[in-house]
């Protein structure tokens, strides 16, 4: 530590050696303690500016600004209760076409058998009896 260097430190960082760069702090303190009169003027000037700066009021955000900052933040993710479809799944169009094709195929295979069923009249008869409906009487009424 030289005298010139100590003057530079005081001029840059102020009168308090604790604000000096850590690597030079101890040496600066030693020199100040050894020759207080030599650096008294520099310390006094620096201290006057330090106290002028310390008098500046703290700048704090208003409550309104704080609320605007909070409101601009990301929203909480919505709670996921039960099954939710994903917004986009690359396989979705393919699966839709597959389902459509399977449906058409099943329809083509099953339709002829269903329409040609010989069980249809038997089923109708069971339902008519269950409802208390007599087809023979109905035919007679029509004949009258």
């Amino acid at each position: 530590m030289t005298e010139d260097r100590l003057i530079e430190l005081i001029e840059a960082w102020g009168a308090d050696p604790s604000a000096f760069p850590e690597a030079e702090r101890a040496a600066a303190r030693s020199m100040l303690a050894a020759q207080p009169a030599r650096f008294a003027a520099a310390i006094a000037e620096a201290r006057a500016l330090d106290s002028a700066l310390a008098r500046l009021p703290e700048i704090l955000p208003s409550a309104a600004l704080t609320e605007r900052l909070v409101a601009s933040a990301p929203r909480p993710k919505a709670a996921t209760s039960g099954f939710r479809l994903p917004k986009f799944a690359p396989w979705a169009p393919a699966s839709g076409f597959a389902a459509l094709a399977a449906g058409l195929f099943m329809g083509v295979m099953v339709a002829p058998a269903a329409s040609a069923s010989s069980d249809t009249s038997e089923v109708e008869s069971v339902i008519e009896h269950a409802l208390g409906y007599d087809p023979a009487a109905f035919t007679e009424e029509l004949g009258e």
């Binding site: 703290e58 700048i59 704090l60 955000p61 600004l65 704080t66 900052l69 909070v70 933040a73 990301p74 929203r75 909480p76 993710k77």
Partner: peptide, 18 residues
């Protein structure tokens, strides 16, 4: 805060906005 935790958001704002 990235997950949208309101308390964490407010803590970051309170700590760093001044």
């Amino acid at each position: 805060a990235a997950a949208g935790d309101p308390a964490a958001v407010r803590a970051l704002v309170n700590r760093y906005s001044p």
